[in-house]
């Protein structure tokens, strides 16, 4: 084994890239859960976003349009979940699972002709001045734009939930939907909007995998990233700041195990590949103290 082959600067730099898809999916789910809805279909929306993004990007040649397509694809799939759980009052756990199973099927159907094709280039963005700072520059300021889009969305969600009136309403709906309804807020409309935002974010996260991280389309390529995003929301106790920490922690584990694989550590590859999932379980065990939104996962039916 040759540990000196691991360059700490490159390791930290790729950490931000590895964390981005999960950060995107998790921040969307955070908003959904703060509105009191538990959508377990993140994995299905992510993989649908991955294939929609890839197909659009290959056909138009523009990765930006690809990301747009992915967001729309993810949001459309989430509408299905929204209609079932909000209007037809179905069980959220079962519907979320169905969404994942359905999304996996839809994505491999759409992606049939696209296996093995290379997507369009999505160049890194060398931020002038900041990117030239030694060590910190390559770690923080020389990534592709989506890394910063992810951070901006995270910041935006934090500000929205903490400072805006609509954010307050959204939290009220999530804490106690009957009280929010009694105050005259449109519980179902707000939840539908949150669900669609979550779907769009999950779609972006999936497209980040197929357009930047891998960058190719393969069936089942999200490999549990959506579930890990769900776990990170719990880890973060439904707070955007800690969500960022969780996503980077997870990105760190992923990147480290990939580097250890490349460095030829004496542990078999399969056991190293398990580590992100095991790390997620450990994190869930340590951090299960947070308090979930009061109405999380409960069915809302306005009785008059």
């Amino acid at each position: 084994m040759d540990l000196s082959a691991i360059n700490p600067v490159l390791l930290l730099a790729s950490l931000m890239v590895a964390a981005t898809p999960i950060l995107l999916a998790a921040i969307g789910e955070l908003v959904v859960e703060r509105a009191g809805v538990l959508n377990l279909g993140v994995e299905g929306m992510m993989i649908t976003g991955a294939v929609c993004g890839f197909v659009v990007a290959v056909n138009t040649g523009s990765p930006w349009l690809g990301f747009l397509g992915a967001a729309i694809g993810g949001a459309l799939l989430s509408v299905l979940f929204g209609v079932l759980t909000q209007y037809l009052l179905s069980n959220q756990v079962a519907t979320g699972l169905a969404l994942t199973l359905f999304g996996l099927g839809v994505s491999s159907l759409i992606g049939q002709g696209y296996i093995g094709i290379k997507g369009p280039e999505f160049p890194d963005w060398h931020i002038p001045l900041l990117g030239d700072i030694p060590i910190i520059g390559p770690i923080v300021f020389q990534h592709d734009p989506m890394v910063y889009v992810g951070l901006l969305i995270c910041l935006g969600v934090w500000a929205f939930l903490k400072y805006s009136r609509l954010g307050l309403v959204l939290r009220a709906v999530g804490e106690n939907h009957d009280a929010a309804h009694a105050l005259g807020y449109k519980v179902i409309r707000i939840r539908m909007a949150a669900i669609m935002f979550g779907g769009a974010c999950a779609g972006l996260g999936g497209a980040y995998l197929s357009l930047v991280r891998v960058p190719q389309w393969t069936e089942g390529m999200t490999a549990g990233a959506g579930w890990i995003a769900l776990a990170i929301v719990v880890f973060a106790s439904w707070r955007p700041g800690r969500l960022l920490l969780g996503a980077y922690l997870f990105g760190g584990v992923t990147v480290l195990q990939l580097n250890l694989q490349a460095a030829g550590l004496a542990i078999p590859v399969e056991y190293l590949s398990m580590s992100p999932y095991l790390a997620t379980i450990v994190v869930l065990v340590i951090m299960s103290a947070g308090r979930a939104p009061g109405s999380l996962g409960r069915i809302f039916h306005a009785s008059r």
């Binding site: 009052l89 169905a98 359905f102 099927g105 159907l109 049939q112």
Partner: peptide
């Protein structure tokens, strides 16, 4: 027929089941 179409059909079945279930309770 692509293999994925069957997987999708199975997912669709679960969706419809959850959707029409509303008739049982409401």
């Amino acid at each position: 027929l692509p293999a994925a179409a069957i997987q999708m059909l199975q997912g669709m079945l679960l969706f419809f089941l959850l959707a029409v279930d509303v008739l049982t309770n409401y």
